[in-house]
Design a protein around this nucleic acid. Structure first.
Lengths: 197, 197
DNA sequence: GGTAGATGGTACCGGTCGGTCCGATCCGAT
DNA sequence: ATCGGATCGGACCGACCGGTACCATCTACC
């Protein structure tokens, strides 16, 4: 957790290190749950360095949420891709990946949605909307390849299952949330692909 | 018992007024987005009165979330009950009620989940879990009366749709979120009630 | 009219907030 | 050997935080 500055003074590396450590601490404590001073001691960096890299606390938050969105989105997309070409398999893989996330002891819900729930800054709302948009694209693609009658609608319903499962896992009971959502998702997928049955 | 009434101006009414006004302001601004001083001027009450009724800011927050949970839960239950005895109709009524909520210009997601996303206090987490539990009871009851093979599982899946629709409506696009979720819910209900088809 | 509780208004408290600044130190390149 | 950028550690700032104290005022009941 302390700054592991390799052999070089490398601003880019310092920035990345701050980002990674700050993400963990702010996720655990909440954006307003820790001040900049304590945050800096926890991640082992001076206030001046943090402010030189990110300007303001809000700047750090935005950079961190943006990075988190990209990481999580590609992580889900890769989980789907690794499951092969069958849309049903890809969808199941997405929810299996989510369940693994829910089982992480530090899981506290989606960091981006948590941030949007408390921070009214426009930049955060923009990042959040785009984040959900990326999820929607992934799920709509699966719906489309499954031959759904109305892929955008099914994609949206699957997005609701993803987000709903995350909320339930975070605030009610994480055990089996991913599996329950996966089963519901596959039911919707089948019904949409063969509406006559 | 004749005693007790030493009161004069009606503290209970004052308390209720504070609770109602504070709910609106804190929902709009976020729990940490406004200080007690400004909050008091906004709701037209002195700090001393507020602190005498609720002890601390956290006390106010907890009382407010508890009241909100009860109001919203009974509101949804009544919407379902008003739809008659058919489980499918009741379920549809729930999502129709949600869509009306989403269409409110001040809609910013579920106040209770928003609070839980930022506040790590145990009392808030407890209120949130219980709140979701009440939703779950309502939906599991519908699932059961619909003859679902496994009412608890279907109830949980329906809960995910409710919460997912709320998240999507709050942070992505409110238009038609309730309708999309309703359609998905009815599909799940049909599939669970007649698994052989 | 007297009295007691409820309230408003306001000054005040210690602490913490986000953010700035400066000197000392470290490091890689020259 | 030296120099310049990156970093650290901490002092410092004004503003605001949640919370308390005090007092004048108001209102309902006697």
């Amino acid at each position: 957790m302390p700054v592991t500055k390799g052999s070089t003074i490398d601003p880019a590396r310092t920035r990345a290190t701050i980002l990674e450590a700050a993400t963990a601490v702010l996720y655990e404590r909440g954006l307003d749950g820790i001040g900049v001073a304590e945050l800096c001691t926890r991640i082992g960096v001076s206030k001046e360095t943090l402010y030189r890299h990110f300007g303001t606390k809000d700047g750090l938050v935005e950079a961190m949420l943006q990075a988190r969105s990209e990481r999580v989105t590609s992580w889900l997309a890769e989980a789907a891709a690794a499951a092969g070409d069958a849309p049903g398999e890809q969808l199941a893989a997405v929810f299996d990946a989510l369940q693994r996330w829910y089982d992480d002891p530090v899981f506290r819900g989606c960091a981006i949605l948590n941030a949007a729930a408390q921070h009214h800054v426009d930049a955060v709302r923009t990042i959040t909307a785009r984040h959900l948009g990326h999820y929607l694209d992934l799920l709509t693609g699966i719906a489309s390849r499954a031959g759904a009658v109305d892929p955008p609608v099914l994609g949206r319903q699957l997005l609701m299952l993803v987000e709903g499962a995350t909320v339930v896992a975070a605030h009610h009971d994480a055990a089996g949330a991913g599996e329950a959502a996966r089963q519901a998702a596959l039911t919707l997928l089948s019904a949409a692909a063969r509406p006559s049955l």
